[in-house]
């Protein structure tokens, strides 16, 4: 490209005619902008969602078959017990990993660029966290679709409610992952160490892979204080069509707790982000 040509073109448009709207947009507008920005790469490349699903699918295919007639997995097909847990696991994994996107943008300068715009700090976090709902729904649909030919029985109304609870949880997990990313700025290892250290205990203690019912008392107690346990239990009820159960409310409460905690910590971290 010739310098003079570029310069001449430059003259015509660099400052443009469309001045910015100096009125400050609403929180909703800001959040929507961030949400759309996060969503675009997913929409442009939907296949990327499948990558974060590898682990859940591996567990589904290679671990699930071991569960038939396993005590505590309920009556009938083990899939009816296992699939809801895997759906939660998938939501947990993609949510827990999402902070790494922000971690990368902290390094490249993209996040800094967003910080200099008039976007509200809270919107920078909420928009990102809300986006987690989209891959979660996509993953849930894929998992259910994959399992139905193998005898998984779908109760649509219950499943829809389960997705609603998972959406709330996805926001919470995503927000927590972003908080961790913000706290780990320029220290990747910190993010990955903490994320990996926490991920598996929470996974195992939620009774996703194996029921905790026959475990020792201390293990069951740890399971009882893990909010994920309640989300998993609620999903099991809902995916099996039991909507009017106390466990559903408990699960919704646990998801709301995670979302509130995540947003609180996340927005605080974002406000301090530099």
């Amino acid at each position: 490209m010739s310098t003079t040509v570029a310069a001449r073109e430059t003259n015509t448009a660099l400052t443009g005619t469309a001045g910015p709207n100096r009125r400050r947009p609403s929180l909703l507008h800001d959040t929507g902008t961030v949400f759309v920005r996060e969503l675009l790469p997913v929409l442009r490349n939907p296949f990327s969602v499948v990558f974060t699903m590898v682990q859940p699918l591996v567990f589904l295919g290679l671990f699930g078959p071991l569960l038939s007639d396993f005590p505590g997995t309920g009556e009938g097909s083990a899939l009816q017990w296992f699939v809801p847990g895997i759906v939660v696991m998938s939501c947990l994994f993609s949510g827990a990993f999402t902070g790494s996107n922000l971690l990368f943008e902290l390094q490249t300068g993209s996040h800094e660029r967003m910080l200099v715009t008039p976007l509200r700090r809270s919107a920078l976090l909420i928009g990102r966290a809300l986006k987690e709902i989209v891959p979660m729904v996509m993953q849930t649909v894929i998992i259910v679709a994959v399992c139905m030919p193998f005898g998984f029985e779908l109760h649509l109304a219950g499943a829809a409610l389960a997705v609603l609870i998972l959406a709330v949880m996805a926001v919470g997990i995503g927000a927590l992952s972003y908080s961790l990313a913000l706290a780990s700025k320029d220290q990747d290892w910190l993010f990955w160490t903490i994320q990996q250290t926490l991920l598996f205990p929470f996974l195992l203690l939620a009774g996703i892979l194996l029921p905790l019912d026959n475990g020792p008392g201390w293990l069951r107690t740890l399971g009882d204080i893990n909010p994920l346990t309640y989300v998993v239990d609620a999903c099991r009820l809902l995916f099996n069509g039991e909507i009017a159960a106390a466990g559903v409310l408990q699960g919704a409460g646990a998801a709301a707790f995670l979302a509130a905690l995540g947003l609180l910590v996340g927005i605080r971290s974002m406000r301090h982000s530099t």
Partner: peptide
């Protein structure tokens, strides 16, 4: 953002400023 497309980022940037 490295996973974004340039044009998308430009439009979003404009939206960030309330355009």
């Amino acid at each position: 953002g490295h996973t974004q497309r340039g044009r998308d980022e430009l439009v979003i940037q404009g939206r960030c400023y309330g355009m």
